[in-house]
C-alpha cells in the first residue's frame, strides 16, 4: 500500500502543535492511527481531548497538518460525514428530548424526514435508549446522557468514531454492551478512538494505545510492542505453581533472568527477565525436568498501567 493510500485510510497528524495562548495543548505530534480501536491514555491535561478536538475540527492546529481519512479538519462537509464525536461536554441544547436531538441534527446533516427518523430509531436502539428517548434530556441520568451522546455520534454511521471518556457514568452492564458495540464497529474496519481513565478496560478493548504526557506523545503501538521496547524495565512474569521455591532456584540459571522472588501478595513466583522469549523457552524445559505443576503463567506488568508508570514515572491520575 503506498503512502497516499495509507493516508486515505488513517488519521494522520503531521508535526501538529496546539497552543492555547501560551499554554501548551499538544506539541509536535506525529501519529498515524489505523482502523481498529485506539486508546488515548494519559492523565488530565496530557492532551487527549485536545487531540480529539483537533481531529474533529473543533480546534485548529497552531502548526502542522491533520488528515482524517484524507479529509482536512477545516472541510466540514467531508469531515462531518466521516466523523462522529461523543464529546466530554455533558451539555445539550435546552428543551429537547433525546429523539428530537438526534432527529434534529440528522436533518442538519441533510437527511430527509424518513431517513432521519430511521437513523434516529436505529441509533437509539443500538445504545438501548429507545424507551426513554421521548423524555426530555434534562430528566436523564448521567448514564442516559452518555448513551444519548453516543447515539448522536453513531447516528450518521461514521467511519471514524471519536469517543472522549465514553464509559463514564455507565453501569457495568451498559459498559459491557458499549464495549461490545465498539468491538463490533472496529471489526467492520472503522476507526474507534477512545480516551479513558479506566486502564484495565483500555487494555481489554484496545488494538493499540497512544500514551500522552504533558502534551507529548511518549509511546504508541500495541501494548505488547510498547512494553517490549522498554529495555530498562525487565518484564515481570507471575508464575503460580505447586513448588515455587524450587522453581525459583532453577530459573536463576537462565541468563536473562535478573530477579526471582516469591510474591505472597499475588500468590506466586515473580520473575523479572530482560528477554521474555528466551525465558519462556528455558522455562518449558525447567518445568518438564522438575515435574513442576504449573497453574498459570502471565505477564505481570504488560498492561497500560504499568507501561505508563514506567514511561512517565507515575504521578498521574490516569487510573
Amino acid at each position: 500500500m503506498d503512502t497516499q493510500a495509507r493516508h486515505e485510510d488513517a488519521i494522520v497528524f503531521d508535526n501538529v502543535s496546539k497552543f492555547y495562548g501560551e499554554v501548551l495543548g499538544v506539541n509536535r505530534v506525529h501519529l498515524a492511527v489505523p482502523p481498529g480501536i485506539t486508546s488515548l491514555v494519559g492523565p488530565n491535561g496530557s492532551g487527549k481531548t485536545t487531540l480529539m478536538n483537533l481531529m474533529t475540527g473543533l480546534l485548529r492546529p497552531s502548526q502542522g497538518t491533520i488528515r482524517v481519512l484524507g479529509a482536512r479538519p477545516d472541510d466540514p462537509e467531508r469531515l462531518g460525514a466521516l466523523v462522529g464525536y461523543c464529546t466530554q461536554f455533558d451539555s445539550f441544547p435546552r428543551g429537547f428530548t433525546g429523539r428530537e436531538l438526534l432527529y434534529g441534527y440528522l436533518r442538519v446533516h441533510g437527511y430527509d424526514a424518513q431517513a432521519a427518523a430511521q437513523r434516529t430509531d436505529r441509533a437509539l436502539e443500538r445504545v438501548g435508549m429507545t424507551e426513554p428517548s421521548r423524555r426530555r434530556i434534562a430528566s436523564y441520568s448521567k448514564g442516559m446522557r452518555q448513551r444519548i451522546k453516543l447515539a448522536q455520534a453513531l447516528a450518521h454511521d461514521p467511519r471514524v468514531l471519536v469517543l472522549d471518556e465514553p464509559l463514564n457514568g455507565l453501569d457495568p452492564m451498559a459498559r459491557a454492551e458499549v464495549i461490545a458495540l465498539f468491538r463490533d464497529l472496529a471489526a467492520q474496519g472503522r476507526h474507534v478512538i477512545i480516551s479513558s481513565h479506566i486502564l484495565h478496560e483500555v487494555d481489554l478493548i484496545s488494538d493499540q494505545v497512544v500514551l500522552l504526557h504533558e502534551g507529548y506523545v511518549v509511546a504508541e503501538g500495541t501494548i505488547r510492542n510498547v512494553r517490549g521496547e522498554m529495555e530498562k524495565h525487565p518484564l515481570q512474569i507471575l508464575i503460580r505453581c505447586d513448588r515455587p521455591a524450587q522453581l525459583a532456584s532453577r530459573v536463576f540459571e537462565v541468563d536473562s533472568v535478573v530477579e526471582a522472588r516469591i510474591d505472597e501478595e499475588r500468590g506466586g513466583l515473580l520473575v523479572k527477565t530482560k528477554d521474555a522469549e528466551r525465558f519462556y523457552l528455558a522455562f518449558n524445559h525447567i518445568v518438564l525436568e522438575n515435574e513442576v505443576r504449573v497453574e498459570a503463567v502471565a505477564p505481570a506488568d504488560e498492561d497500560v498501567d504499568a507501561v505508563y508508570e514506567y514511561l512517565i514515572g507515575g504521578g498521574g491520575d490516569q487510573a
Binding site: 473543533l58 466540514p76 462537509e77 467531508r78 469531515l79 451539555s91 445539550f92 441544547p93 435546552r94 441534527y105
Partner: peptide
Amino acid sequence: GEVIDRSLHYYFLTPIRR
C-alpha cells in the same frame, strides 16, 4: 448563547459549511 450553553459543537460536528 450556544457557547454559554455549551451546545455549539453539535452544529460544528455536522457536515455543514459554517
